[in-house]
Design a protein around this nucleic acid. Structure first.
Length: 110
DNA sequence: TAATTGACAAAGG
DNA sequence: TCCTTTGCCAATT
C-alpha cells in the first residue's frame, strides 16, 4: 500500500487518531480542519471503512453530541461503553457536557 | 459516465 | 432542538 495515496479518508483517520483520551469531536469539526467544511458527510462516510483502521471512531459524534453512528459498531452499546470508559458521560445516546469535552482540531491540533 | 449513497450541517417551519 | 427540506461532496456501484 502506498502512503502517498492518501485519500480524503486517510486524512480523516489521521485526525481522528489524534483525538485525546476522554475527548470527542464532531464530523463537521474534522471536515473544517481538513479545509472541507461542507464535506462533513464525507467524514462520516469515511468512518465506514474505519473498521479496518485503528481509528477511535467512538470519539466522533455529530455536532449535537449524538451517537448517531453507534449502529455501525459491533454492539449497540459498545460505542457508549467505550466513551463512558474514558470518563465521558453519555445518556440516551447523547454526550453530556459536550462543550466541556469537545475537542476542536482546528484549535488544538493546528 | 451517470446515478446513488451517507456515522452531517444549516436553515426554515 | 423537534421535524422537514436543502446543500454539500468524495466514494461507491
Amino acid at each position: 500500500m502506498k502512503p502517498e495515496t492518501e485519500s480524503f479518508f486517510e486524512r480523516v483517520y489521521d485526525v481522528v487518531r489524534q483525538i485525546p483520551y476522554g475527548r470527542v469531536t464532531s464530523y463537521g469539526a474534522i471536515a473544517n480542519f481538513l479545509g472541507a467544511l461542507k464535506s462533513a458527510r464525507i467524514v462520516g462516510y469515511a468512518m465506514n471503512n474505519s473498521h479496518d483502521k485503528d481509528v477511535p471512531a467512538h470519539r466522533v459524534v455529530n455536532r449535537k453530541g449524538l451517537l448517531t453512528g453507534k449502529h455501525h459498531f459491533k454492539g449497540v452499546n459498545l460505542m457508549q461503553q467505550l466513551l463512558e470508559n474514558e470518563g465521558v458521560v453519555v445518556k440516551d445516546n447523547q454526550i453530556q457536557n459536550l462543550e466541556s469535552i469537545f475537542w476542536n482540531p482546528s484549535e488544538e491540533l493546528k
